[in-house]
Design a protein around this nucleic acid. Structure first.
Lengths: 207, 207
DNA sequence: CGTAGTTTGCGACGAACTGTTACAAACTTT
DNA sequence: AAAGTTTGTAACAGTTCGTCGCAAACTACG
């Protein structure tokens, strides 16, 4: 049961719970009910309990779920416990915002390196990361075991960076540019598209 | 049938197609097949054709779909054609990245105004937008018919901005901070959480 | 002109997932 | 001790999705 691959839906919801739990923990809460998680995620409370109870009894009746331990449990279920190294490309406004925000660090991702092609940016410090020259890509990826490449570069160079990442063996690419990336089928591309998510939200507001 | 509300799944997929179509158009393509869209979205080609054919015959057999006209059709289906005004809060790295990126403009969103509380930032020009003082919030929202508020502010002030947006009548909030926002039930909050999306992608890579 | 190849549109069917209702058990609060 | 919460779990109906199959329309090419 736990050895089976999770359904797309279950994995998506568990990730969603993780998001809410992490935010709730940051705000000082230590315990949360399925009802409360439902209000923040829109997922049915019964569905939440069913999702969780399939893997063990994590909650206390009459109380709710302990946030710290539930986060740990979900990470185990998703097999994403521990630290994962990511590499960030582009040291512009967006790259700097990502590097200093802590959104990745909160979920166990460590920004192993940050790259840019602009010589005036190489060597610059962003938070506690130093911007490296793009030519060091494959070296750093191999050395640090980088699993994910995050693209905060202009659209017209995104494909080139993606190609280089694929060549270096990276299997997951997170794309913040507006380019459509072509990669081998064993590589996953996730494109961030806030405007499209807004259109989706807007539809339900308008109808 | 077209008057019925779309299912969550259909609306989500249509938005997703819109994303790929917009990207494809930017790269100079004029036509695309359901097979190609499938490769970029992971959605079954038959499912894509079924989603679209429910609203009309948009494709040409043997050829595929004309990108420009399909984008227009999907926008009509989602009832999100035309321009929508949004307001951006926070003129830091992230706010500046969003204001200059064009991701919203490509999908019919116009950044009507940009706000910050820092007096040294008020009056600054970001792209072709001038940063305004936060106290002008309600005035601008009413004047420009702002429908969406985008929060690119630190987590500890996000709730306060959200409250002010709700008071001004804004019904959709896009949250880039790591705060958990409490809003009335008729207001939609969408929290961007790239790290969680990464965990989700990572799960399927690891298993 | 004709033939081969491509792609949409559409129907049908089974499997999987989701929402809902209901309720006992465990825990807290008063 | 009693009342109120909340989880864990079962059962069932409805919806959605993936898949297979195939005719119709279009292009390309000789």
């Amino acid at each position: 049961m736990a050895a089976d691959r999770l359904t797309l839906g279950v994995a998506a919801r568990l990730s969603r719970y993780l998001q809410v739990l992490t935010q709730a923990r940051k705000m000082g809460k230590t315990s949360i009910s399925s009802q409360a998680v439902s209000e923040y995620t829109g997922v049915n409370p019964t569905q939440i309990r069913r999702d969780l109870s399939g893997f063990g009894k994590f909650g206390k009746r009459g109380v709710g779920y302990d946030i710290d331990s539930l986060i740990e449990q979900i990470r185990k279920i998703l097999r994403t416990s521990g630290q994962h190294n990511i590499a960030l490309f582009g040291a512009g406004n967006l790259g700097q915002a990502i590097a200093t925000s802590g959104v990745f660090a909160d979920h166990g991702f460590s920004i192993s390196a940050m790259f840019d092609v602009d010589p005036t940016k190489v060597g610059m410090r962003v938070g506690d990361i130093t911007v490296r020259d793009y030519s060091q890509l494959s070296e750093i990826v191999a050395q640090d075991g980088v699993m994910v490449g995050v693209l905060a570069v202009p659209g017209d160079v995104a494909q080139r960076v993606a190609d280089d990442l694929v060549a270096a063996g990276v299997k997951i690419i997170f794309n913040y540019s507006d380019a459509l990336l072509s990669v081998p089928s064993d590589v996953t591309v996730h494109t961030s598209s806030p405007a499209v998510e807004l259109l989706y939200a807007l539809y339900f507001y308008l109808s």
